[in-house]
């Protein structure tokens, strides 16, 4: 009964439009995606496991997923502040800033990559001030807590090291949190806060007990979207990451490296792990959005 109509309609074109949609979807999306899974199905389980658990691949997973998580968290915090400021405060240039938030969607990732590198490299506008500070901070941290390998964990410079990946992934994920929060903040009636105030809540209590619970589903959705996008990101990261194997090599780059060595099976095996991870994320995001829609009944 799948794809059968539940109700007759006098509108024409159901068969034509659905047929075309399914054919196009199948040819462009489903068949090529199936190719990846079938290619992996041709591998034996030990072969697959040998690729997916090889140290360089695992290190790249840690870099990609770990830094994406961190970037998405930072985006959640700053995105919340930015969305709040854009919705609640009026200031000259608000429209401009609001329009600029979508820049990471519109700017080609390669351009973003080289531009961020130019700014945060050791001789860049921000890098020339921040880079020595970072190096000194890591040094200080190593003296303070010597049992953690800080230079390995946080990198010793901004560009061409792990912080560079973080910068690129934060840039890429920035619009997601802001754009998922903005409509919810718009709908959030100020009367709610006024009621809380008349009932004797102070500003802090109003924020933590009234406002944040309302924003939470959208905030988590935005966070998940930013994370999902960051995990797969390639263009903006490769220029600024330094791409050192086992240290600052992201998984998408490793896939390309394997492809360039004609190791198609290896590349596909890694890709399948990432695909499964992103499909699980997609599922979570779908559920989250259903949840947040149920949560908001205005």
């Amino acid at each position: 009964m799948l794809l059968a109509r539940t109700q007759r309609s006098v509108l024409p074109g159901f068969g034509l439009s659905l047929g075309f949609t399914l054919a196009y979807l199948g040819l462009i999306v489903l068949v090529p995606l199936a190719a990846a899974f079938l290619k992996t199905a041709g591998m034996s389980w030990p072969d697959f496991w040998a690729v997916a658990s090889s140290p360089r691949v695992v290190a790249s997973f840690k870099v990609s997923f770990g830094i994406s998580l961190f970037a998405a968290l930072v985006n959640a915090v700053f995105g919340l502040i930015l969305a709040w400021v854009l919705v609640r405060y009026s200031f000259p240039g608000r429209r401009l800033v609001d329009g600029l938030v979508d820049l990471p969607f519109a700017l080609p990732t390669a351009v973003a990559g080289i531009a961020l590198t130019a700014i945060y490299a050791q001789n860049g506008w921000v890098g020339q001030w921040l880079d020595p500070l970072w190096a000194r901070g890591i040094q200080r941290l190593s003296n303070l807590i010597p049992w953690v390998n800080w230079p390995e964990f946080l990198g010793v410079k901004l560009a061409f090291d792990r912080p560079g990946i973080f910068i690129a992934l934060t840039f890429i994920g920035l619009p997601f949190v802001v754009r998922t929060l903005q409509p919810v903040l718009n709908e959030l009636e100020p009367e709610l806060e006024e009621v809380a105030a008349t009932l004797g809540a102070n500003r802090w209590q109003t924020m933590t007990r009234v406002v944040f619970p309302e924003l939470m589903p959208a905030l988590i959705t935005g966070f998940a979207l930013a994370f999902a996008r960051a995990v797969g990101e390639y263009g903006s990261v490769v220029f600024i990451a330094g791409n050192m194997p086992m240290h600052s090599e992201i998984t998408p780059l490793l896939i390309i490296t394997k492809l360039e060595q004609y190791d198609y099976q290896g590349a596909t095996a890694i890709a399948v792990v990432m695909l499964v991870a992103s499909f699980v994320l997609l599922l979570c995001i779908n559920l989250l959005q259903k949840w947040s829609r149920r949560y908001y009944r205005f």
Partner: peptide, 17 residues
């Protein structure tokens, strides 16, 4: 679905086909 797929993997699947 294509939004959930890493750009690199989007290219890879066409290489596989």
């Amino acid at each position: 679905l294509p939004f959930a797929v890493s750009p690199v993997i989007s290219g890879l699947i066409y290489v596989l086909v």
